[in-house]
Computed example of a mutant assay.
Amino acid sequence: MDLERDIFKTGSAQAIAESLKRSSTHSKRRKGTPFQSAMSMLNFYINRAGRNLPKARRATLQQAKRKLREAFGREP
């Protein structure tokens, strides 16, 4: 799946969720559903950063997960 450059470094959880949704629905290079691909990329980034991720940034990314679920009409 192709992502926007430096999308996880933006400040807004809403912007991250919208970008992931847009990328996953338009990409032809993904496995699974668009929701699975978008959530997988977000989880991968969070897990890869590990303990080096500041608490404020982790909170923003966790909020982006909730926004992503809402964007795809999933249970919040």
Rank of each mutant, 00 (worst) to 15 (best):
L53W: 08
R51Q: 14
R57D: 15
L68Y: 02
L3M: 12
R74E: 15
L3K: 10
S19N: 11
G32C: 08
R48L: 04
Y45I: 09
Q62E: 15
K21I: 00
N43D: 15
A56Y: 05
K67N: 13
T25I: 08
I16E: 09
N52C: 07
A64R: 01
R58D: 12
I7C: 12
R51H: 12
A17G: 12
L20R: 03
M39Y: 04
A64N: 05
L20K: 01
R74H: 08
K28D: 14
K21M: 12
I16L: 09
T60K: 06
A13L: 09
Q14W: 03
E70T: 09
K65C: 13
M1H: 01
Q62L: 11
Q36G: 08
K67G: 04
P34V: 01
R51Y: 11
E4R: 07
A17C: 12
I16Y: 07
K21A: 07
M1S: 07
K31S: 13
R5N: 08
A59M: 10
M39T: 03
F8I: 05
S12F: 06
I16S: 05
L20C: 05
L20I: 02
G73R: 02
R57G: 05
M39R: 02
N52V: 02
D6V: 01
K67I: 00
G73M: 04
N43S: 14
S37Q: 10
K55T: 09
L3W: 09
R51F: 09
A38V: 02
T60Q: 14
M1C: 05
R22W: 10
A13Q: 14
K31T: 10
S23A: 13
L61Y: 03
M41G: 04
R5D: 13
S12I: 06
E75Y: 00
S24K: 05
M41D: 14
T25D: 13
L42T: 04
A15F: 01
S37D: 15
T60G: 04
R48A: 10
N43W: 05
E70D: 15
N43P: 01
N47A: 12
G50N: 11
R74M: 11
Q62M: 09
Q63N: 14
R29C: 01
S27R: 06
Q63C: 11
A17I: 02
A17V: 05
S24N: 06
K31D: 14
K9G: 03
T60E: 15
K9H: 07
S12H: 11
K65L: 10
S23F: 00
S27V: 04
K67C: 07
A13F: 03
Q36S: 13
T25E: 15
L3Q: 10
M1T: 07
N52Y: 14
